[in-house]
Every structure is written in structure tokens, then in C-alpha cells.
Design a protein around this nucleic acid. Sequence first.
DNA 1: ACGCCAATTCGACGTTTCTTCGGATTTCAG
DNA 2: CTGAAATCCGAAGAAACGTCGAATTGGCGT
Lengths: 248, 248
Amino acid sequence: MYLRELRMERNMPGAHPSAEGAVDAPAGAGDAWQDLLDMVVSRPKRGTERKQDRSKRTEQQILNAAMRVFARDGISRARIADIAAEAGISTSTLYEYYKSKEDLAYDVPILHLAAFLEEFREAVADKTTARDRLQLYLTMSADYAREHAEWARLLYLEIWPSVFVSETDLRHSIDDFSRVVIFLVKQGIAEGTWSARHDPYETAAILVGGLNQITVTWLLYRKPRNLTKAGNELVERMLKMLETEAET
Amino acid sequence: MYLRELRMERNMPGAHPSAEGAVDAPAGAGDAWQDLLDMVVSRPKRGTERKQDRSKRTEQQILNAAMRVFARDGISRARIADIAAEAGISTSTLYEYYKSKEDLAYDVPILHLAAFLEEFREAVADKTTARDRLQLYLTMSADYAREHAEWARLLYLEIWPSVFVSETDLRHSIDDFSRVVIFLVKQGIAEGTWSARHDPYETAAILVGGLNQITVTWLLYRKPRNLTKAGNELVERMLKMLETEAET
DNA sequence: ACGCCAATTCGACGTTTCTTCGGATTTCAG
DNA sequence: CTGAAATCCGAAGAAACGTCGAATTGGCGT
């Protein structure tokens, strides 16, 4: 898994307009894009497969309960016993499913992350330009956070930046989120939409950072009132700024 | 303290170019700016004053030890006993200074935050335009994170977004960080540097968010290699983009 | 220099929460 | 129906947090 990521990295950084093949031809671009989508959608899969139906149900109940409790109390203050009780099982049963509280906490966001990416993959099907895809991606992610606020609280306010997510599946999934943006920025540069004079990583940082910032602010203070609208406006504005930049 | 903040809020949000007085006249602007600086510099003061010298030394040792251990192990995995040992005191003595681990964790970043603001206040003295001040503020903050990486790990990767910093002194201090940016953006609008057609909060979100993003990436992966340089470039670019926006 | 009081320190103990373990119960294929 | 695997749970263990009262130390008035 880590190898795949590294290989990915090596393929991408060039991004000079001169770079041949990768994302130039419409067909080639489509393939690389589909490959990336496949990768980020397939990554968030859990390892352990449960054998019995009863068990699958229990697992769902644990995940639901955990999300509620973690979102309400925070990871550090949340008690395993509370989660187990809320899931309707005994504390020790929970340990049959997750070997520690940390493990559980890092597993909870993954399913929703996969659901978001799946939603995006469907919605993006009829978009062809990098600009359209990027706009959809960013606005959808703000909207998804609004719709699933409990999940977003957990992910954005507790897990996203945390050091200790390093070297876990979740960290890879989170990095994938930025990876998509970086890919699309490079694609947009190849398409001539944005200036090639700027580092795509820097551009991606502005986009992802700005969006995160208003999302976190919304989660903490419910300001701006309407996150979806604010997200749309922000994305529209940032993309417009990037285009204007090219003309300078 | 909370009252003062609210009053501040009420003064600021208007920000239409028509708003009179607040940040229009050079003199008035200077005063509002100095007031803001005074406020954000004075906020990070700890309540409890220790009586004996020995005690002040112990407190320092605790804070130093805590920063090391928290940065190394993360807040949740760090053990009070380890911190106490590293500080050369017994566990129970530590509880004379901080009533809980959480309390300690939230107190650690405050001193450095105050130091940064103090540094900034001195450095900004000879800057007169909102643009120059903003540029200095943002680049200095990236540089400060690089210089004090342990502190930055704690603040950016563990505390900044966390829900549970709500309602604490630290939260106010962190909010102050953005407040300065918002203030300067509004001032820049009043000075005609940036377009008045955009929400200053949105503009601030882009600036703060983008900078945070590369800082966090650097803390996690040491990429970009040179944070100071990358921060300077990013800030330069973002400010240029904002100016270009006005001409559209 | 001395003695007193408050500030500070610490070891021992109580409490909470996480985690493990062995056996009881349930499911399901054959 | 039956046996093996999967699942569940109560009780006990381990680890970390947090408290308390006694012992020590520093600062101040005389």
C-alpha cells in the first residue's frame, strides 16, 4: 500500500506542461483519472471480514454508537463502556471487534469517507474538464460535512490533523483526499486552465486549506450559517482567482 | 474578558466601505490596530500566580517537560507520570500545578503563543499598510512554527481544531489569531487594497487555511522542505491574487 | 540568627477506565 | 441432530488518573 502511494508520487510531481502522455490526451487523462478514482474508492476497506450476519449487525451497531459517543464526548473523554452500552453489547464483546479504543476511533470515519467518494464518483461521471471536476469535488465535500455533521466533527475536529493517524489506513485515506485535488490541479494545468508557473501542491494547499478552514469554523460555531452556500461561493471564488492568475 | 471580545465583534463585522470611523483615518486605524494588538498580546496570561521562586522554576520545568512529552507521544498517549519524571518531580506535585492532564495540555501552548505575538508586535511597528502587516503576520507565523516545531506539533496537530478547547482561554487565543487576519483584511478593504465585494471572513479563511495547510503538511511529512520559503511564496502569491481580484 | 507560618513536595492510597481471559451461548454446515 | 467455529459476557487484572495528609522547605518579621 505504501509502495503504491510512493509510485503514485513519483508519477505525478513533474506536471510541467511539457510532460508527455500522462494527462494530455482526453483518453489518457480519462484513464489516469479513473485509475485514481478506483484507488481512492477502494482504499477504505476494512480488513477483517465477519462470518455471521449477527456479527455484521453488531459491527454496525458498534460503529454507529461509537460515532455518536465520540462526536458527543470527544475521543479522549469517550468511554468504551458507554459505546458498548449504546450499542447494546457488553464491554468485552466490543474487544472482539476492535483491539483498542484508538483502533475503533480510527475506523469509524472510514466508512463515511468511502461513501463520500462513491457519491462523488457517480456525480463526477458527466464532468469532463478538470475545473468542473475540482469544483464538484470541493463543493460536495463541504456539503457532505454539513449533511453528516457528527462524522465531520469526528474527522475534522479530532482526527484529521492528528499525528497519530500517521501510518494507518485512515491516514492514507485522508491523504487521498488531497491527492485528488492535486491530481486535478495538474490536469487543469495540462489543459491550460491554470498557470503552469505555480506549484500544484501549493495551489492544492490553498484550495483544501481554505475549504477546511470554513468547515472547521462551521463545525465549531455554526458560522457561516449555511455551509453549503458558503462552500459554493468560496470554491467559485478561489477557482476564479486561479484563472485570473493565469492572465497576469 | 469575554465581554471585551463580544464588543470587539460588534465593532467589526460591518466592514462595508461606508462604515465610518473605525479603520478609515490613518490615526483612527492606528489606534484600533494598537488596541487589537494590546488585546491579543495581553490575553495569554495565566491566572494563578506562584509565590515562591522554587515554584516558578518547577512550573517552567513542568511546561518544558510537558511540551516535549506531548509532542513526542501525543496528548492522549502521554502519561502524567512521564511528564512529572521528566520534570524531576513527583506525580502528585504536578497536580498542585494543574488539576488535570487536559488542563496542562491546554496551558502549554499559551506561552509560546504570547511570545509569537510579542515578536510580531515589535516587528510590525514600522509597517503601516494593512497589506504589509498581513504579509508579515502570515510569514512570521509560518516561520515561528518551523523554529518551534515541537510546540507547533502540539498546537497545530493536536489542539487547534479540537472541539474541547472550546470555552477555554486557549480557544480565545487561537481565535485571536484569526481575528488579527480578519481585522487586517477589513483594514485593507478600507484602504482600497482589496475588493470590497468579498466577505472579509471568507478572505481570511483562504489566507489562514492555506497557510495552516502547508504548515500541517510540513509538520507531518517535512514537505515542503523549507517551510519558511514555502510560506513566503504562498503568502506572496495569495496576496497578489487578492489584489488582482480587485481589478476584475 | 531564629522561629513561625504558609507554600511546596511527596509517598501511599482510592478511583476510574482500559483490556484480557476463560467459559457459556449461539449459529450454521454437514 | 451434532459438533465446531463464531460470538458473547462476567469477572478479574493492569494501567493510568487523581486525592489526601503528613513531611519538608522557603520567606519574613523580629
